[in-house]
Design a protein around this nucleic acid. Structure first.
Length: 109
DNA sequence: GAACTGACTGTAA
DNA sequence: ATTACAGCCAGTT
């Protein structure tokens, strides 16, 4: 069993996620870059999947590239994330977050 | 150690 | 818009 508590990469990821301001959304790739792990978006997914019990992290502010919610549409976690985001004033439409809430460093534009 | 898996991402057709 | 595929890499069979 991996020890998450002494894995600096995961710690940093959790820290970065915890700093995402309310009403703002970031992406897996962006979080990875900020955590000093460029190109390792998947590790961010792993980190969020294994958040230590007791740590209250705004995991719902992390979405896929382009603002797409990572969970399959219709699933419980998908709805949960959409609900939490809307509760913060974030526009979620068709499983997507409006561009205006995403980091500017995204492709396109 | 090989093969798979996954809360991902970019490129191409 | 959708599908396919190559990178990516820690964890799990």
């Amino acid at each position: 069993m991996p020890r998450h508590e002494d894995n600096p990469a995961l710690q940093t990821i959790w820290d970065v996620v915890a700093r995402i301001p309310r009403g703002r959304v970031s992406t897996y790739g962006e979080v990875a870059r900020e955590a000093g792990l460029p190109g390792r978006a998947r590790q961010v997914g792993y980190a969020l999947k294994h958040v230590p019990k007791g740590l209250d992290l705004p995991w719902h502010r992390v979405v896929g590239a382009g603002g797409k919610i990572a969970f399959p549409p219709g699933t419980k976690p998908h709805r949960e994330q959409a609900r939490r985001l809307r509760a913060e004033g974030v526009t979620v439409e068709n499983g997507r977050v409006a561009r205006s809430f995403l980091p500017e460093s995204l492709p396109g534009d």
